[in-house]
Design a protein around this nucleic acid. Structure first.
Lengths: 198, 198, 198, 198
DNA sequence: AATGAATGAGCCTTCATTCAT
DNA sequence: TATGAATGAAGGCTCATTCAT
């Protein structure tokens, strides 16, 4: 498979992401993908054998992008810890609200049916990575006096479970931007020294 | 429909709950239900026209029970606010860990594809009910000095989003009982007056 | 599956035999069967899951009939050994020449691809049964002076291999009734005492 | 088509023979051939338009070799008739038992579905050639007193039908080398003068 | 009410064949 | 000549739904 077909494979992955975003995992058929890509049935099978294979490749390309972006945005800057945490949460908010190419539902659906060993579960990796980033930011903030926190890892976990809760709520009940802000703010305020808070 | 067929309908709903619990929503076929109920294909159609109708009835019977249980357990007692909140959280934990007849995944799957108007969304009703209960309990606790909390509704919401996060995590990544305890404890500790906490 | 569906199953087997007879094994699709039976695709799958299952059932019903007929025709009579052998060969000739519902080719094709353990191979059973019948007839003939033969089992085997050769020749090259008679006669003449032969 | 492409065509035919030998006729796809030859899909079509054309060319090249070999081996020697017949039968036995590049099954399969006019049927040509060879050998043997036979052509035909029977048996039921020897011996013994036989 | 055989739409998958390079 | 990506026809199979009994 040369450069050309690598391009086409990427093209299919991009289109497929849109389809999975709209329909979840199990609702998607190879025909849906074929229609979205405007290629022939047989053509699709040259690149992917079934929706699972396709979905997992969509996910892994997605994950790569996410991790990179998140880590870059959160850690490589020279801004203050508070600013960086705010930036991180802004990214999370964007993700929670994202309509297009949002794989949250499909991912939850897939992994709830196809449980992975804890070790290999990419959802776990993503979650743990995020927790570690937040924890680090809080610790930095505590060091330079921006934050007050006795249990940074507990707080980081609390924050990320809230984010998970907001994600699934966004996809099932629906949620407003303001409500997200309010929830994230609630957690942040717990970190800010008392006098500044009032 | 006489009393006899009402009984049979309930029988089907009970069996169907087990199936949706195991397989999610979209993965369930009418044949799965028929097999679980050990009735005929045609027989099932006398009571339900398709899996969606069946699922929604399963859900609404579920919701009724849940609400009743939760409210009874949380509010009708004469225990202290702290004990009642602990009881409420114990119920939530049981729900998060429940293997049998757990409709979490099927429900998320269904409502993420079939978005409801905010008003009629039973998930929203359930969530809001829970928040109100927790809020009430916190307020009671603050009044009698058990808790310290400046923003009871914010804290209640935070708690319930964490619970949502734990639910979905339990179903996709998997989670240990200890991890659930730790998260719920983290929130509770924020409510306990400082001196008692150390 | 009640009596009614047993009838339908038999109906399908009958039609399928015709199809396998015309097209061999691998050339037959479920659609061919469906068309021949004038039933729906789904309907066929209620009875048989694939062409192999269908073919094997056709074969085993076939075999039962054959064995019974052959054994009855060859051994239960009170005619002379010569007459009975002649009868047996007439049956073989009929089989070799049969156009309709002749599974020779399909069977050869199937078993050449799906080799069976020698023990379970129905072709072997059929062949061995035939050899034993012929051997018995020859021995009877020798006893009452109709035949002369020093090696009845060798002669019986020779005869049945010739029959096999004639069967496959009939299906691939084509063969006339006279040619079959000539071959079978050639073997029979070896059994008849010299003086009668001229 | 230059010399170079003639070579490649022969290369494809050789590889294809192996494939038809393993899989029969209908089971072989153009992809099987392409893979065996390690050439491109399009490349194959430059030489052969479909599996049938390819198979027929494989067959005709096969036939040519066979005939030549057989005739050379059987008639051009200066050995005794008995030795030459033994040699011929040894060749037949080798063919019956041959695993690699054995087209028996594919050939039977092809010609049983695609009946040829008797005149052009290469199977018939092969069979008739073999009969004539055996007949000639027997006649020679009778002349010089090695054999006793009143009906050489009948005996030759009987022998070749047995060989056909052994071939198909070998491919469907399976047969041991000893069983083949026994059958061929049975026929040969009928040719040997009585006193020598005992 | 209840049964379960039957239907046919629709998705899955393979493969012969074409065609731009 | 040679390549291999692309196509679409065709067959496999499942499942919601109907209907005669």
């Amino acid at each position: 498979m040369g450069e050309k077909s690598a391009k086409k494979k990427q093209y299919i992955l991009d289109k497929a992401r849109g389809v999975f975003s709209e329909k979840g995992f199990k609702n998607v058929t190879m025909k849906d993908i074929v229609d979205a890509c405007e290629i022939s049935r047989g053509g699709l099978y040259l690149y992917f054998s079934n929706t699972e294979e396709l979905f997992l490749e969509v996910l892994s390309s997605e994950a790569r992008e996410d991790d990179d972006e998140a880590i870059d945005a959160a850690l490589s800057g020279d801004a203050s810890a508070g600013d960086m945490l705010a930036l991180f949460l802004k990214e999370q908010k964007k993700e929670i609200l994202r309509k297009k190419n949002n794989l949250t539902v499909a991912t939850y659906e897939y992994y709830s049916v196809n449980k992975q060993t804890t070790k290999n579960n990419p959802l776990k990796l993503q979650f743990d990575t995020a927790v570690r980033i937040v924890e680090k930011l809080i610790e930095n903030g505590v060091e330079n006096g921006e934050f007050v926190c006795e249990n940074p890892v507990g707080c980081a976990r609390n924050l990320m479970y809230v984010v998970e809760g907001l994600k699934i709520t966004s996809k099932t009940i629906g949620i407003s931007e303001e409500a997200i802000d309010r929830e994230l703010m609630y957690v942040l305020e717990g970190l800010v020294p008392f006098e500044l808070n009032s």
